[in-house]
Amino acid sequence: MSKDTLEKFSQEKCLKLFYEMLRIRRFEEKSAELYSAGKIRGFLHLYNGEEAIAVGVMEMLRDEDSFIGTYREHGHALARGVSMKSIMAEMYGKVEGCSRGRGGSMHLYDKEKKFYGGNAIVGGHLPLAVGLGLADKMQNRDVVTACFFGDGAVAEGEFHESLNLAALWKLPVLFVCENNFYAMGTQISREESQVDLCAKASSYNVKSVAVDGMDILSVMEETQKAIDYITKNESPYFLEFQTYRFRAHSMFDAELYRDKKEVEEWKKKGPIVRFKKLLEEQKWLDEAKIKEMEKKIATEIQASIEFAENGHWEPISHLTKDVYCEEM
């Protein structure tokens, strides 16, 4: 992260990026609180520490591009512009939620935003991304599908089958690996015989690059290059963003497998603190501006909670709705 790169972007854009990351962080913190209060249930996986990836990639994707992700997807949904109210209502299980209360935290969807969902079978959505890319190619649409997944997914057969297929068929898929070095309690070196994930992608002839995922400017630059490459070469691309999750895997995790010191070290390299420092040095950001942002975010979060609280439980008589499409 350097001043030189910073100067490629306007102050306005940088403040917007900073704001988006902060917005996700505060949303996740509030979600944890609401989980403890019993308002949100099921599994809840927070994105703290990884915000630069969702914000940076979404910034570069065009409205017509699709994306698909995992159960750790609140940040992606927010950065894409899925309304915070509908996400909060979803986590409350209300019918006003973005999946009508059927999915919960792990299964946010938004067709209008071309968001093909939070998926909770690790690796299970990579083939879907290949298929979305195939549909785009067969219908001559000049768009990209971004597929987010964790380092853990790389061990599943579906990762390997999907990369091979995407390369073989020359599909416009951007594989975005959020490598936070842990799959639940398993550190990557205990999960992978080859921890250089790009080497795996390269072995399928998929162009691949490893990037500091804590540096939002690099995330954006590398994503732009990837999109250009996919468009020009009609081929998939693999981005490995190295990052770290600051919180437990889910709300059930006692974190016995990692050292608190390790977490603290990573927090110092966090995407928000680093960008904040750079922006302050550039005199683009100061405490007053941050305060203003915090206030705006708090207001939005509060409104989303009120929206969710005032939402409705879908009548039980609708239980079997949407198992099949209605008759045409």
């Binding site: 209360g101 059927r102 239980l319 198992v323």
Partner: peptide, 16 residues
Amino acid sequence: GVEVPIPYAKHLEDAS
């Protein structure tokens, strides 16, 4: 079980 993929919302999950 009712013939529906199990929904998230508590009251619907219980009903299924």
